[in-house]
């Protein structure tokens, strides 16, 4: 097996162009598990941890540019104020040891429907930056997940960053699993209110072949908030509205039965989480903590 260890972005992109079959390795928390099980013997590994553009984050014109290789631990510690939704999701990934190594770029590379970063990225309208020697392109999160463990990156491309405008309103992330730590979620839900744009965004995990948004639920809630003048009045959120939102989020799921839970249980959990999340987020909005 070849082991490629570039130290600059240019070297990394050249290596990926020359060896499109090389498997990038960041935190290794997915790649190593597969290798240790002998499920996967890649012809080459491409270590991306020494490329500083990938392991840094910064602000650019009000937007966060989060290098694909920034660990969950650093997101929790350094970005909790700017990206609370992603930080909340990061706190639930694996164990402390996994969070010290694991990265959002790796979560995107694996593109598992159960990946915890995805609902938060979808709810924040994040964009994924992909680079190759041919140039840079940007794919919206909701267009990035193509199928079970398939994503929009081409074989010659690296996932280089996640670019997003911090949502102007409150954010929530909820996940249900079998144990508190190291749970692969049975169902997960991300929510962000964007009062500046008067829109609601969602992301659902583990309840469909790919992470996805619950479009109808988003439109329904935004329209109701608008017509009742709730964005301005910041009056209480009617419980019937929260419940209806939960039902509409549930309708976006298309889960399977597996060892971690039946489809019916996943959908039920999803509706409950969505109802709670919107209630909490709205309370934050009313008390203006999240704006």
């Amino acid at each position: 097996m070849d082991f490629l260890q570039p130290s600059t972005m240019a070297e990394a992109l050249a290596a990926k162009a020359e060896h499109p079959g090389a498997v990038p390795i960041a935190g290794g928390t997915d790649v190593m598990v597969e290798m240790n099980f002998d499920k996967h013997r890649p012809p080459a590994l491409l270590d991306v941890t020494r490329v500083s553009e990938l392991t840094e984050w910064g602000m650019d014109d009000g937007r966060v540019r989060l290098g694909a290789g920034v660990s969950y631990t650093r997101i929790i510690d350094e970005l909790g104020d700017r990206l609370p939704g992603l930080a909340m999701a990061s706190r639930t990934v694996g164990s402390p040891q996994i969070r010290n190594r694991g990265t959002v770029g790796g979560n995107l590379g694996a593109a598992s429907p159960a990946g915890d970063a995805h609902p938060a990225l979808l709810a924040a309208d994040a964009e994924i930056e992909l680079q190759s020697t041919a140039g840079t392109r940007v794919v919206k999160a909701h267009e990035f997940y193509l199928g079970v463990k398939r994503n929009a990156a081409r074989r010659d491309e690296l996932i280089t960053a996640i670019v997003l405008t911090p949502p102007s309103g409150p954010q929530q992330f909820c996940k249900i699993g079998t144990r508190n730590a190291m749970v692969i979620s049975v169902a997960a839900f991300g929510l962000a209110l964007h009062p500046d744009r008067r829109v609601v965004r969602t992301g659902i995990g583990s309840v469909a072949p790919t992470p996805r948004r619950a479009y109808a639920a988003e439109e329904f809630l935004a329209a109701e908030l608008e017509s009742a003048g709730l964005w301005e009045s910041r009056a209480e959120l009617p419980t019937a509205l929260a419940r209806e939102f939960g039902e509409k989020v549930k309708a976006a799921g298309a889960p399977i039965d597996d060892v971690r839970g039946t489809a019916a249980y996943r959908l039920h959990s999803l509706a409950v989480m969505a109802r709670r999340a919107v209630t909490w987020a709205w309370t934050d909005y009313r008390t203006a903590r999240g704006t």
Partner: peptide, 27 residues
């Protein structure tokens, strides 16, 4: 377990706790 779930292999790598079973020595 050799796949990151039990923590029996925990070491500190540059001061951070890490599952040694999920890290390649060359890195």
């Amino acid at each position: 377990c050799d796949h990151g779930q039990c923590g029996a292999c925990t070491v500190l790598l540059d001061g951070r706790r890490t599952n040694a079973c999920l890290v390649l020595a060359v890195t």
